[in-house]
Amino acid sequence: MFKRKKAVPQPQGPLTEESLKQWLTDYLAVHAEIPRDTIDTQKTFESYGLDSRVAVQVSGALEKIVERRLSPGLLYEYQSIDALSQYLAKELRLTP
């Protein structure tokens, strides 16, 4: 009936803005069922068809990666992969 999506592996090595960006790109490719190399990290999540249900799933998966509680509304506040990964890197003090 419902097909279960493939799990996206957690980033390997130290958590960085770039590793978050790569993970978000992989997650979007799997869940939107589009080739990874066609994803523009500056386009909005909404332009790829992500709805509120998926936004909650993304924030839940991100919580496991960053080991911190996150708002499900993050994808609406930071509407692109670039914006969200930059915010998280700053919030988690991953950048100097």
Score class of each variant (00 low, 15 high):
Glu17Ala: 13
Leu15Val: 05
Ala32Val: 15
Ile39Leu: 04
Phe45Thr: 00
Gly13Tyr: 04
Thr38Tyr: 09
Gln10Asn: 13
Thr16Lys: 10
Asp51Val: 05
Leu28Arg: 04
Ala61Lys: 03
Gln12Met: 10
Pro9Phe: 03
His31Thr: 09
Glu33Ile: 01
Leu24Pro: 03
Val54Met: 15
Ser52Leu: 13
Pro35Phe: 08
Val30Ser: 00
Gln57Ser: 14
Thr44Gly: 10
Val30Arg: 02
His31Phe: 15
Asp40Phe: 02
Gln22Val: 14
Gln42His: 09
Pro35Leu: 03
Ala29Pro: 12
Ala61Tyr: 00
Asp37Trp: 12
Ala61Met: 04
Gly60Tyr: 04
Leu15Asn: 01
Ser47Met: 08
Leu24Asn: 01
Ala55Gly: 10
Pro35Ser: 09
Leu50Lys: 07
Val8Trp: 09
Phe45Ala: 00
Pro11Met: 04
Asp26Tyr: 06
Glu18Pro: 10
Ile39Gln: 01
Lys21Met: 12
Thr25Val: 07
Trp23Arg: 01
Leu15Ser: 00
Asp37Leu: 11
Thr41Arg: 01
Thr25Arg: 09
Ser59Asn: 06
Val54Glu: 12
Ala61Leu: 01
Val58Gly: 01
Ala32Gly: 06
Ile34Glu: 03
Thr25Asn: 03
Leu28Ile: 13
Val54His: 10
Glu33Phe: 00
Leu20Val: 14
Gln10Phe: 13
Val8His: 06
Glu18Ile: 13
Asp26Ile: 04
Gln42Val: 14
Val58Trp: 00
Val56Pro: 10
Pro35Trp: 12
Arg53Glu: 11
Ser47His: 11
Thr16Met: 10
Ala32Phe: 07
Arg36His: 15
Trp23Gly: 00
Ile39Pro: 09
Leu20Asp: 02
Leu24Arg: 04
Lys43Ala: 13
Ala29Lys: 03
Pro35Met: 01
Gln12Ala: 15
Gln12Lys: 14
Val8Lys: 02
Arg53Ala: 13
Thr25Tyr: 13
Gln57Lys: 13
Phe45Val: 06
Thr16Asp: 04
Ala61Gln: 02
Gln42Asn: 11
Asp37Pro: 11
Asp26Lys: 14
Gly49Cys: 12
Ala55Met: 15
Ala55Ile: 05
Tyr48Leu: 06
Leu15Tyr: 11
Ser52Gly: 06
Arg53Leu: 15
Leu28Cys: 03
Gln42Arg: 10
Glu33Asp: 15
Thr41Gly: 00
Glu17Asn: 09
Pro9Lys: 04
Ile39Ala: 03
Gln10Ile: 05
Ile34Val: 15
Leu28Met: 06
Thr38Cys: 10
Leu24Ile: 05
Val30Leu: 05
Pro11Gly: 01
Lys43Glu: 15
Asp26Glu: 15
Lys21Asp: 11
Ala61Arg: 04
Ala32Asp: 02
His31Glu: 01
Ile34Phe: 14
Asp40Lys: 08
His31Tyr: 11
Val54Phe: 14
Glu33Thr: 12
Leu50Val: 08
Ile39Trp: 08
Tyr48Cys: 03
Val56Lys: 06
Ala61Pro: 02
Ser19Lys: 06
Gln57His: 11
Thr16Ser: 12
Asp26Arg: 14
Glu17Lys: 11
Val30Met: 07
Lys43Leu: 15
Phe45Gln: 00
Glu17Phe: 05
Ile39Glu: 07
Asp40Arg: 03
Thr25Glu: 04
Gln10Arg: 10
Thr41Asp: 05
Gln22Pro: 02
Pro11Thr: 04
